[in-house]
Write a protein that binds this DNA or RNA. Structure first.
Lengths: 237, 237
DNA sequence: CGCTATGTTGATCCATATCAATAAGTGTGG
DNA sequence: CCACACTTATTGATATGGATCAACATAGCG
């Protein structure tokens, strides 16, 4: 694999991540000494579940899908976007990956040797604290996701997904789907056919989907149906 | 609430937990200075989701159910047994609990003020490392659980649950259910009625359930059906 | 003991998956 | 730039896993 230099602007982006922004320059350099960067085309497998976790991955451009397989079935676990890290827990525990990862678009990935991450963790208390914060947040995100899956029907999950995305906007109740519908379906725990029908069901609550463009005409109405709540739908805590 | 002294044997049990066993005596004492212990009857609510996380909980006797609610529905997220901690992530992030907890039997709980946990975390690198390990393990456990839920049918989940429990035994393919069936059903993501039928279905694979006693007559056969795999069913990594 | 909660079984309903056909994009090479 | 191939999305028909409702059995527990 061709090893590329990390661009200065890129390094700055990564350093701005909460995981890295408080650490000493010395620690940061120690982390990046063994790092390398690569550009990947779409639909390239980056990691396969079960493999040893040699690198902490940081995505700086593009998008990556985390997915899992069992007995011939496959499900989307998450989609990762810049700038963020993924598979931190496996790196920390020096344990095999539980999920596979593939690029969805042309993507740029920084690879930090896991051994360096563990090394710096041991010497830089600020970094240690940041890793704990990050892990605790990831843990809580997965718990929220489990509640979402177990307590809601597929239409309710879709309704809340839509609300979460439009509310992030600038007041205009519209947004663009950031992934293919079939991946969204898998992420939400349903089939593509079922997603199509769920969208139709939500038309009754003022939701219109044209291609990737989602518009909510009556946020009140959709909210009354979806009943979003912080302990499931707020990804910031 | 009556505040009780932590018994020496109990303190030893807690110190033996991987989370605490490497830390300095000084740190350990700092953690336990503000600690208190309480005995609770069965079916007492210990914490309610949404509440601020004032204490890290350690269960030393009994059993505790972690559950979540939304829109009038309730689901069992996990059952906690001695000696282990729970709601570590909320404590670390100083964020509201995502799950509620109630005692299932008479239980003894040690409460460590969250503020002390965060304080000692900042000063004791061994403790910091242990917390990270614990959190990473918890994170991975929830990911495994999500894979279990999304990739398997309810009968498959039950089959793997049974295998996981009998294989922990002494070679004899039998074990006792550690919780009521309705809670097991909820944990596995199904209704009690459905669990009854799932058990019947597994009779065809040599599973017999009499009360709480589960016997597997043909582990080979059940394994062939359940297809357990480390990346979902092994809780140790 | 008898009450109350839990568990089982049966009948039925509903949500979601599956199968199948078509339509609509999307990318590729001539 | 268009035609073709291929993937994705939609729609309809049907099957099925699982939920719900109801009745009854059973087991804990005061």
């Amino acid at each position: 694999m061709p090893r590329a230099v990390v661009k200065p602007t890129e390094e700055a982006d990564i350093r701005a991540l909460s995981l890295f922004n408080g650490m000493t320059e010395e620690s940061f350099q120690a982390l990046f000494r063994g790092a390398y960067v690569q550009n990947f085309p779409p639909m390239i497998d980056l990691i396969t579940e079960g493999d040893p976790s040699d690198f902490l991955h940081v995505i700086t451009h593009g998008s990556v899908e985390l997915f899992a397989e069992w007995n011939g079935r496959e499900t989307t676990m998450a989609t990762v976007r810049p700038v963020s890290t993924f598979i931190l827990a496996a790196t920390i525990r020096d344990a095999p990956y539980l999920m596979s990862a593939r690029t969805l678009e042309k993507s740029r990935i920084v690879l930090l040797p896991s051994i360096d991450v563990r090394e710096v963790f041991a010497t830089d208390p600020v970094f240690a604290r940041a890793i704990v914060d990050e892990l605790a947040m990831c843990y809580r995100a997965v718990i929220k996701n489990t509640k979402n899956l177990k307590l809601r029907t597929s239409v309710e999950r879709l309704a809340n997904f839509i609300l979460r995305n439009v509310s992030n906007g600038d007041g205009l109740a519209t947004f663009e789907l950031s992934m293919e519908k079939r991946r969204l379906a898998s992420f939400l725990g349903m089939t593509p056919e079922n997603l199509s029908r769920a969208i139709k069901t939500l038309q009754g609550y003022g939701v219109k989907v044209e291609g990737a463009q989602v518009t909510v005409h009556d946020v009140e109405d959709l909210t009354a149906f979806a009943k979003p709540e912080a302990l499931i739908d707020d990804y910031s805590t």
